[in-house]
């Protein structure tokens, strides 16, 4: 649900990073924060536990520039990935305009990826969204680790709709902006369809 303000000439859109625990959602936001000019970003807010696990959400407002005289702002959120934070995840998906699913490429995390993806589908459906109709991209993160699943297999299991996907190493920034750009583009094109 975007917020279009003709008075201040601003468009606000919400993008949520979803995925299993420890897949690198927060790391994505941290990298984006690090690499964006100070005038383009707000504070990175992290509601995390002492051990730096996301408790409620991370939040990063980004103002990348103008389109046709309108300032375009993206509000990036992450959800807490751990299974028992299900109730919080639901809340954060409210009013979402686009979703990035961050998958952990390690073979031993494949089951966690599948579980999280199913959880995403259920939570979206509860709010009347269908994943096929939402601006959506998948990121296969941690490609630098030794025990990663082949991309072909990951696509077969996690990307049955054949959406845009990206290989990433979020700690060094590989694939991070490519993923964001893909979903941001889809969100703006969706606005174009509606207005």
């Amino acid at each position: 649900m975007s917020f279009i303000n003709y008075s201040s000439r601003e468009i606000n859109c919400k993008i949520v990073y979803y995925g299993p625990g420890l897949c690198g959602k927060t790391t994505n936001l941290q990298y984006i924060y690090k690499k964006t000019n100070p005038e383009q970003k707000g504070k990175l807010i992290s509601l995390a536990t002492e051990s730096e696990r996301t408790l409620f959400f991370d939040f990063l407002p980004l103002a990348l520039g103008d389109i046709r005289g309108f300032r375009v702002r993206f509000h990036l959120y992450t959800v807490p990935g751990q299974v028992f934070y299900a109730a919080s995840r639901k809340l954060i998906l409210k009013g979402v305009d686009g979703v990035v699913f961050v998958a952990d490429s390690q073979i031993e995390r494949m089951e966690a990826n599948i579980e999280s993806l199913e959880d995403l589908g259920i939570n979206l459906a509860e709010q009347g969204y269908a994943i096929e109709k939402l601006p959506y991209a998948i990121q296969y993160n941690k490609r630098d680790l030794p025990s990663v699943a082949p991309l072909e297999e990951m696509n077969k299991i996690l990307n049955t709709n054949g959406v845009q996907w990206f290989e990433a190493v979020a700690t060094t920034g590989i694939g991070v902006f490519e993923t964001l750009k893909s979903v941001a583009k889809q969100v703006l094109l969706e606005l174009k369809k509606h207005y």
Binding site: I67, V72, A184, L188, L189
Partner: peptide, 19 residues
């Protein structure tokens, strides 16, 4: 009704420029 929509004309180039 699409009152002076700023989005109707959005092009791929506009979006690329943001990044």
């Amino acid at each position: 009704k699409v009152a002076e929509s700023p989005f109707a004309e959005i092009s791929d180039e506009d979006i690329d420029n943001l990044f």
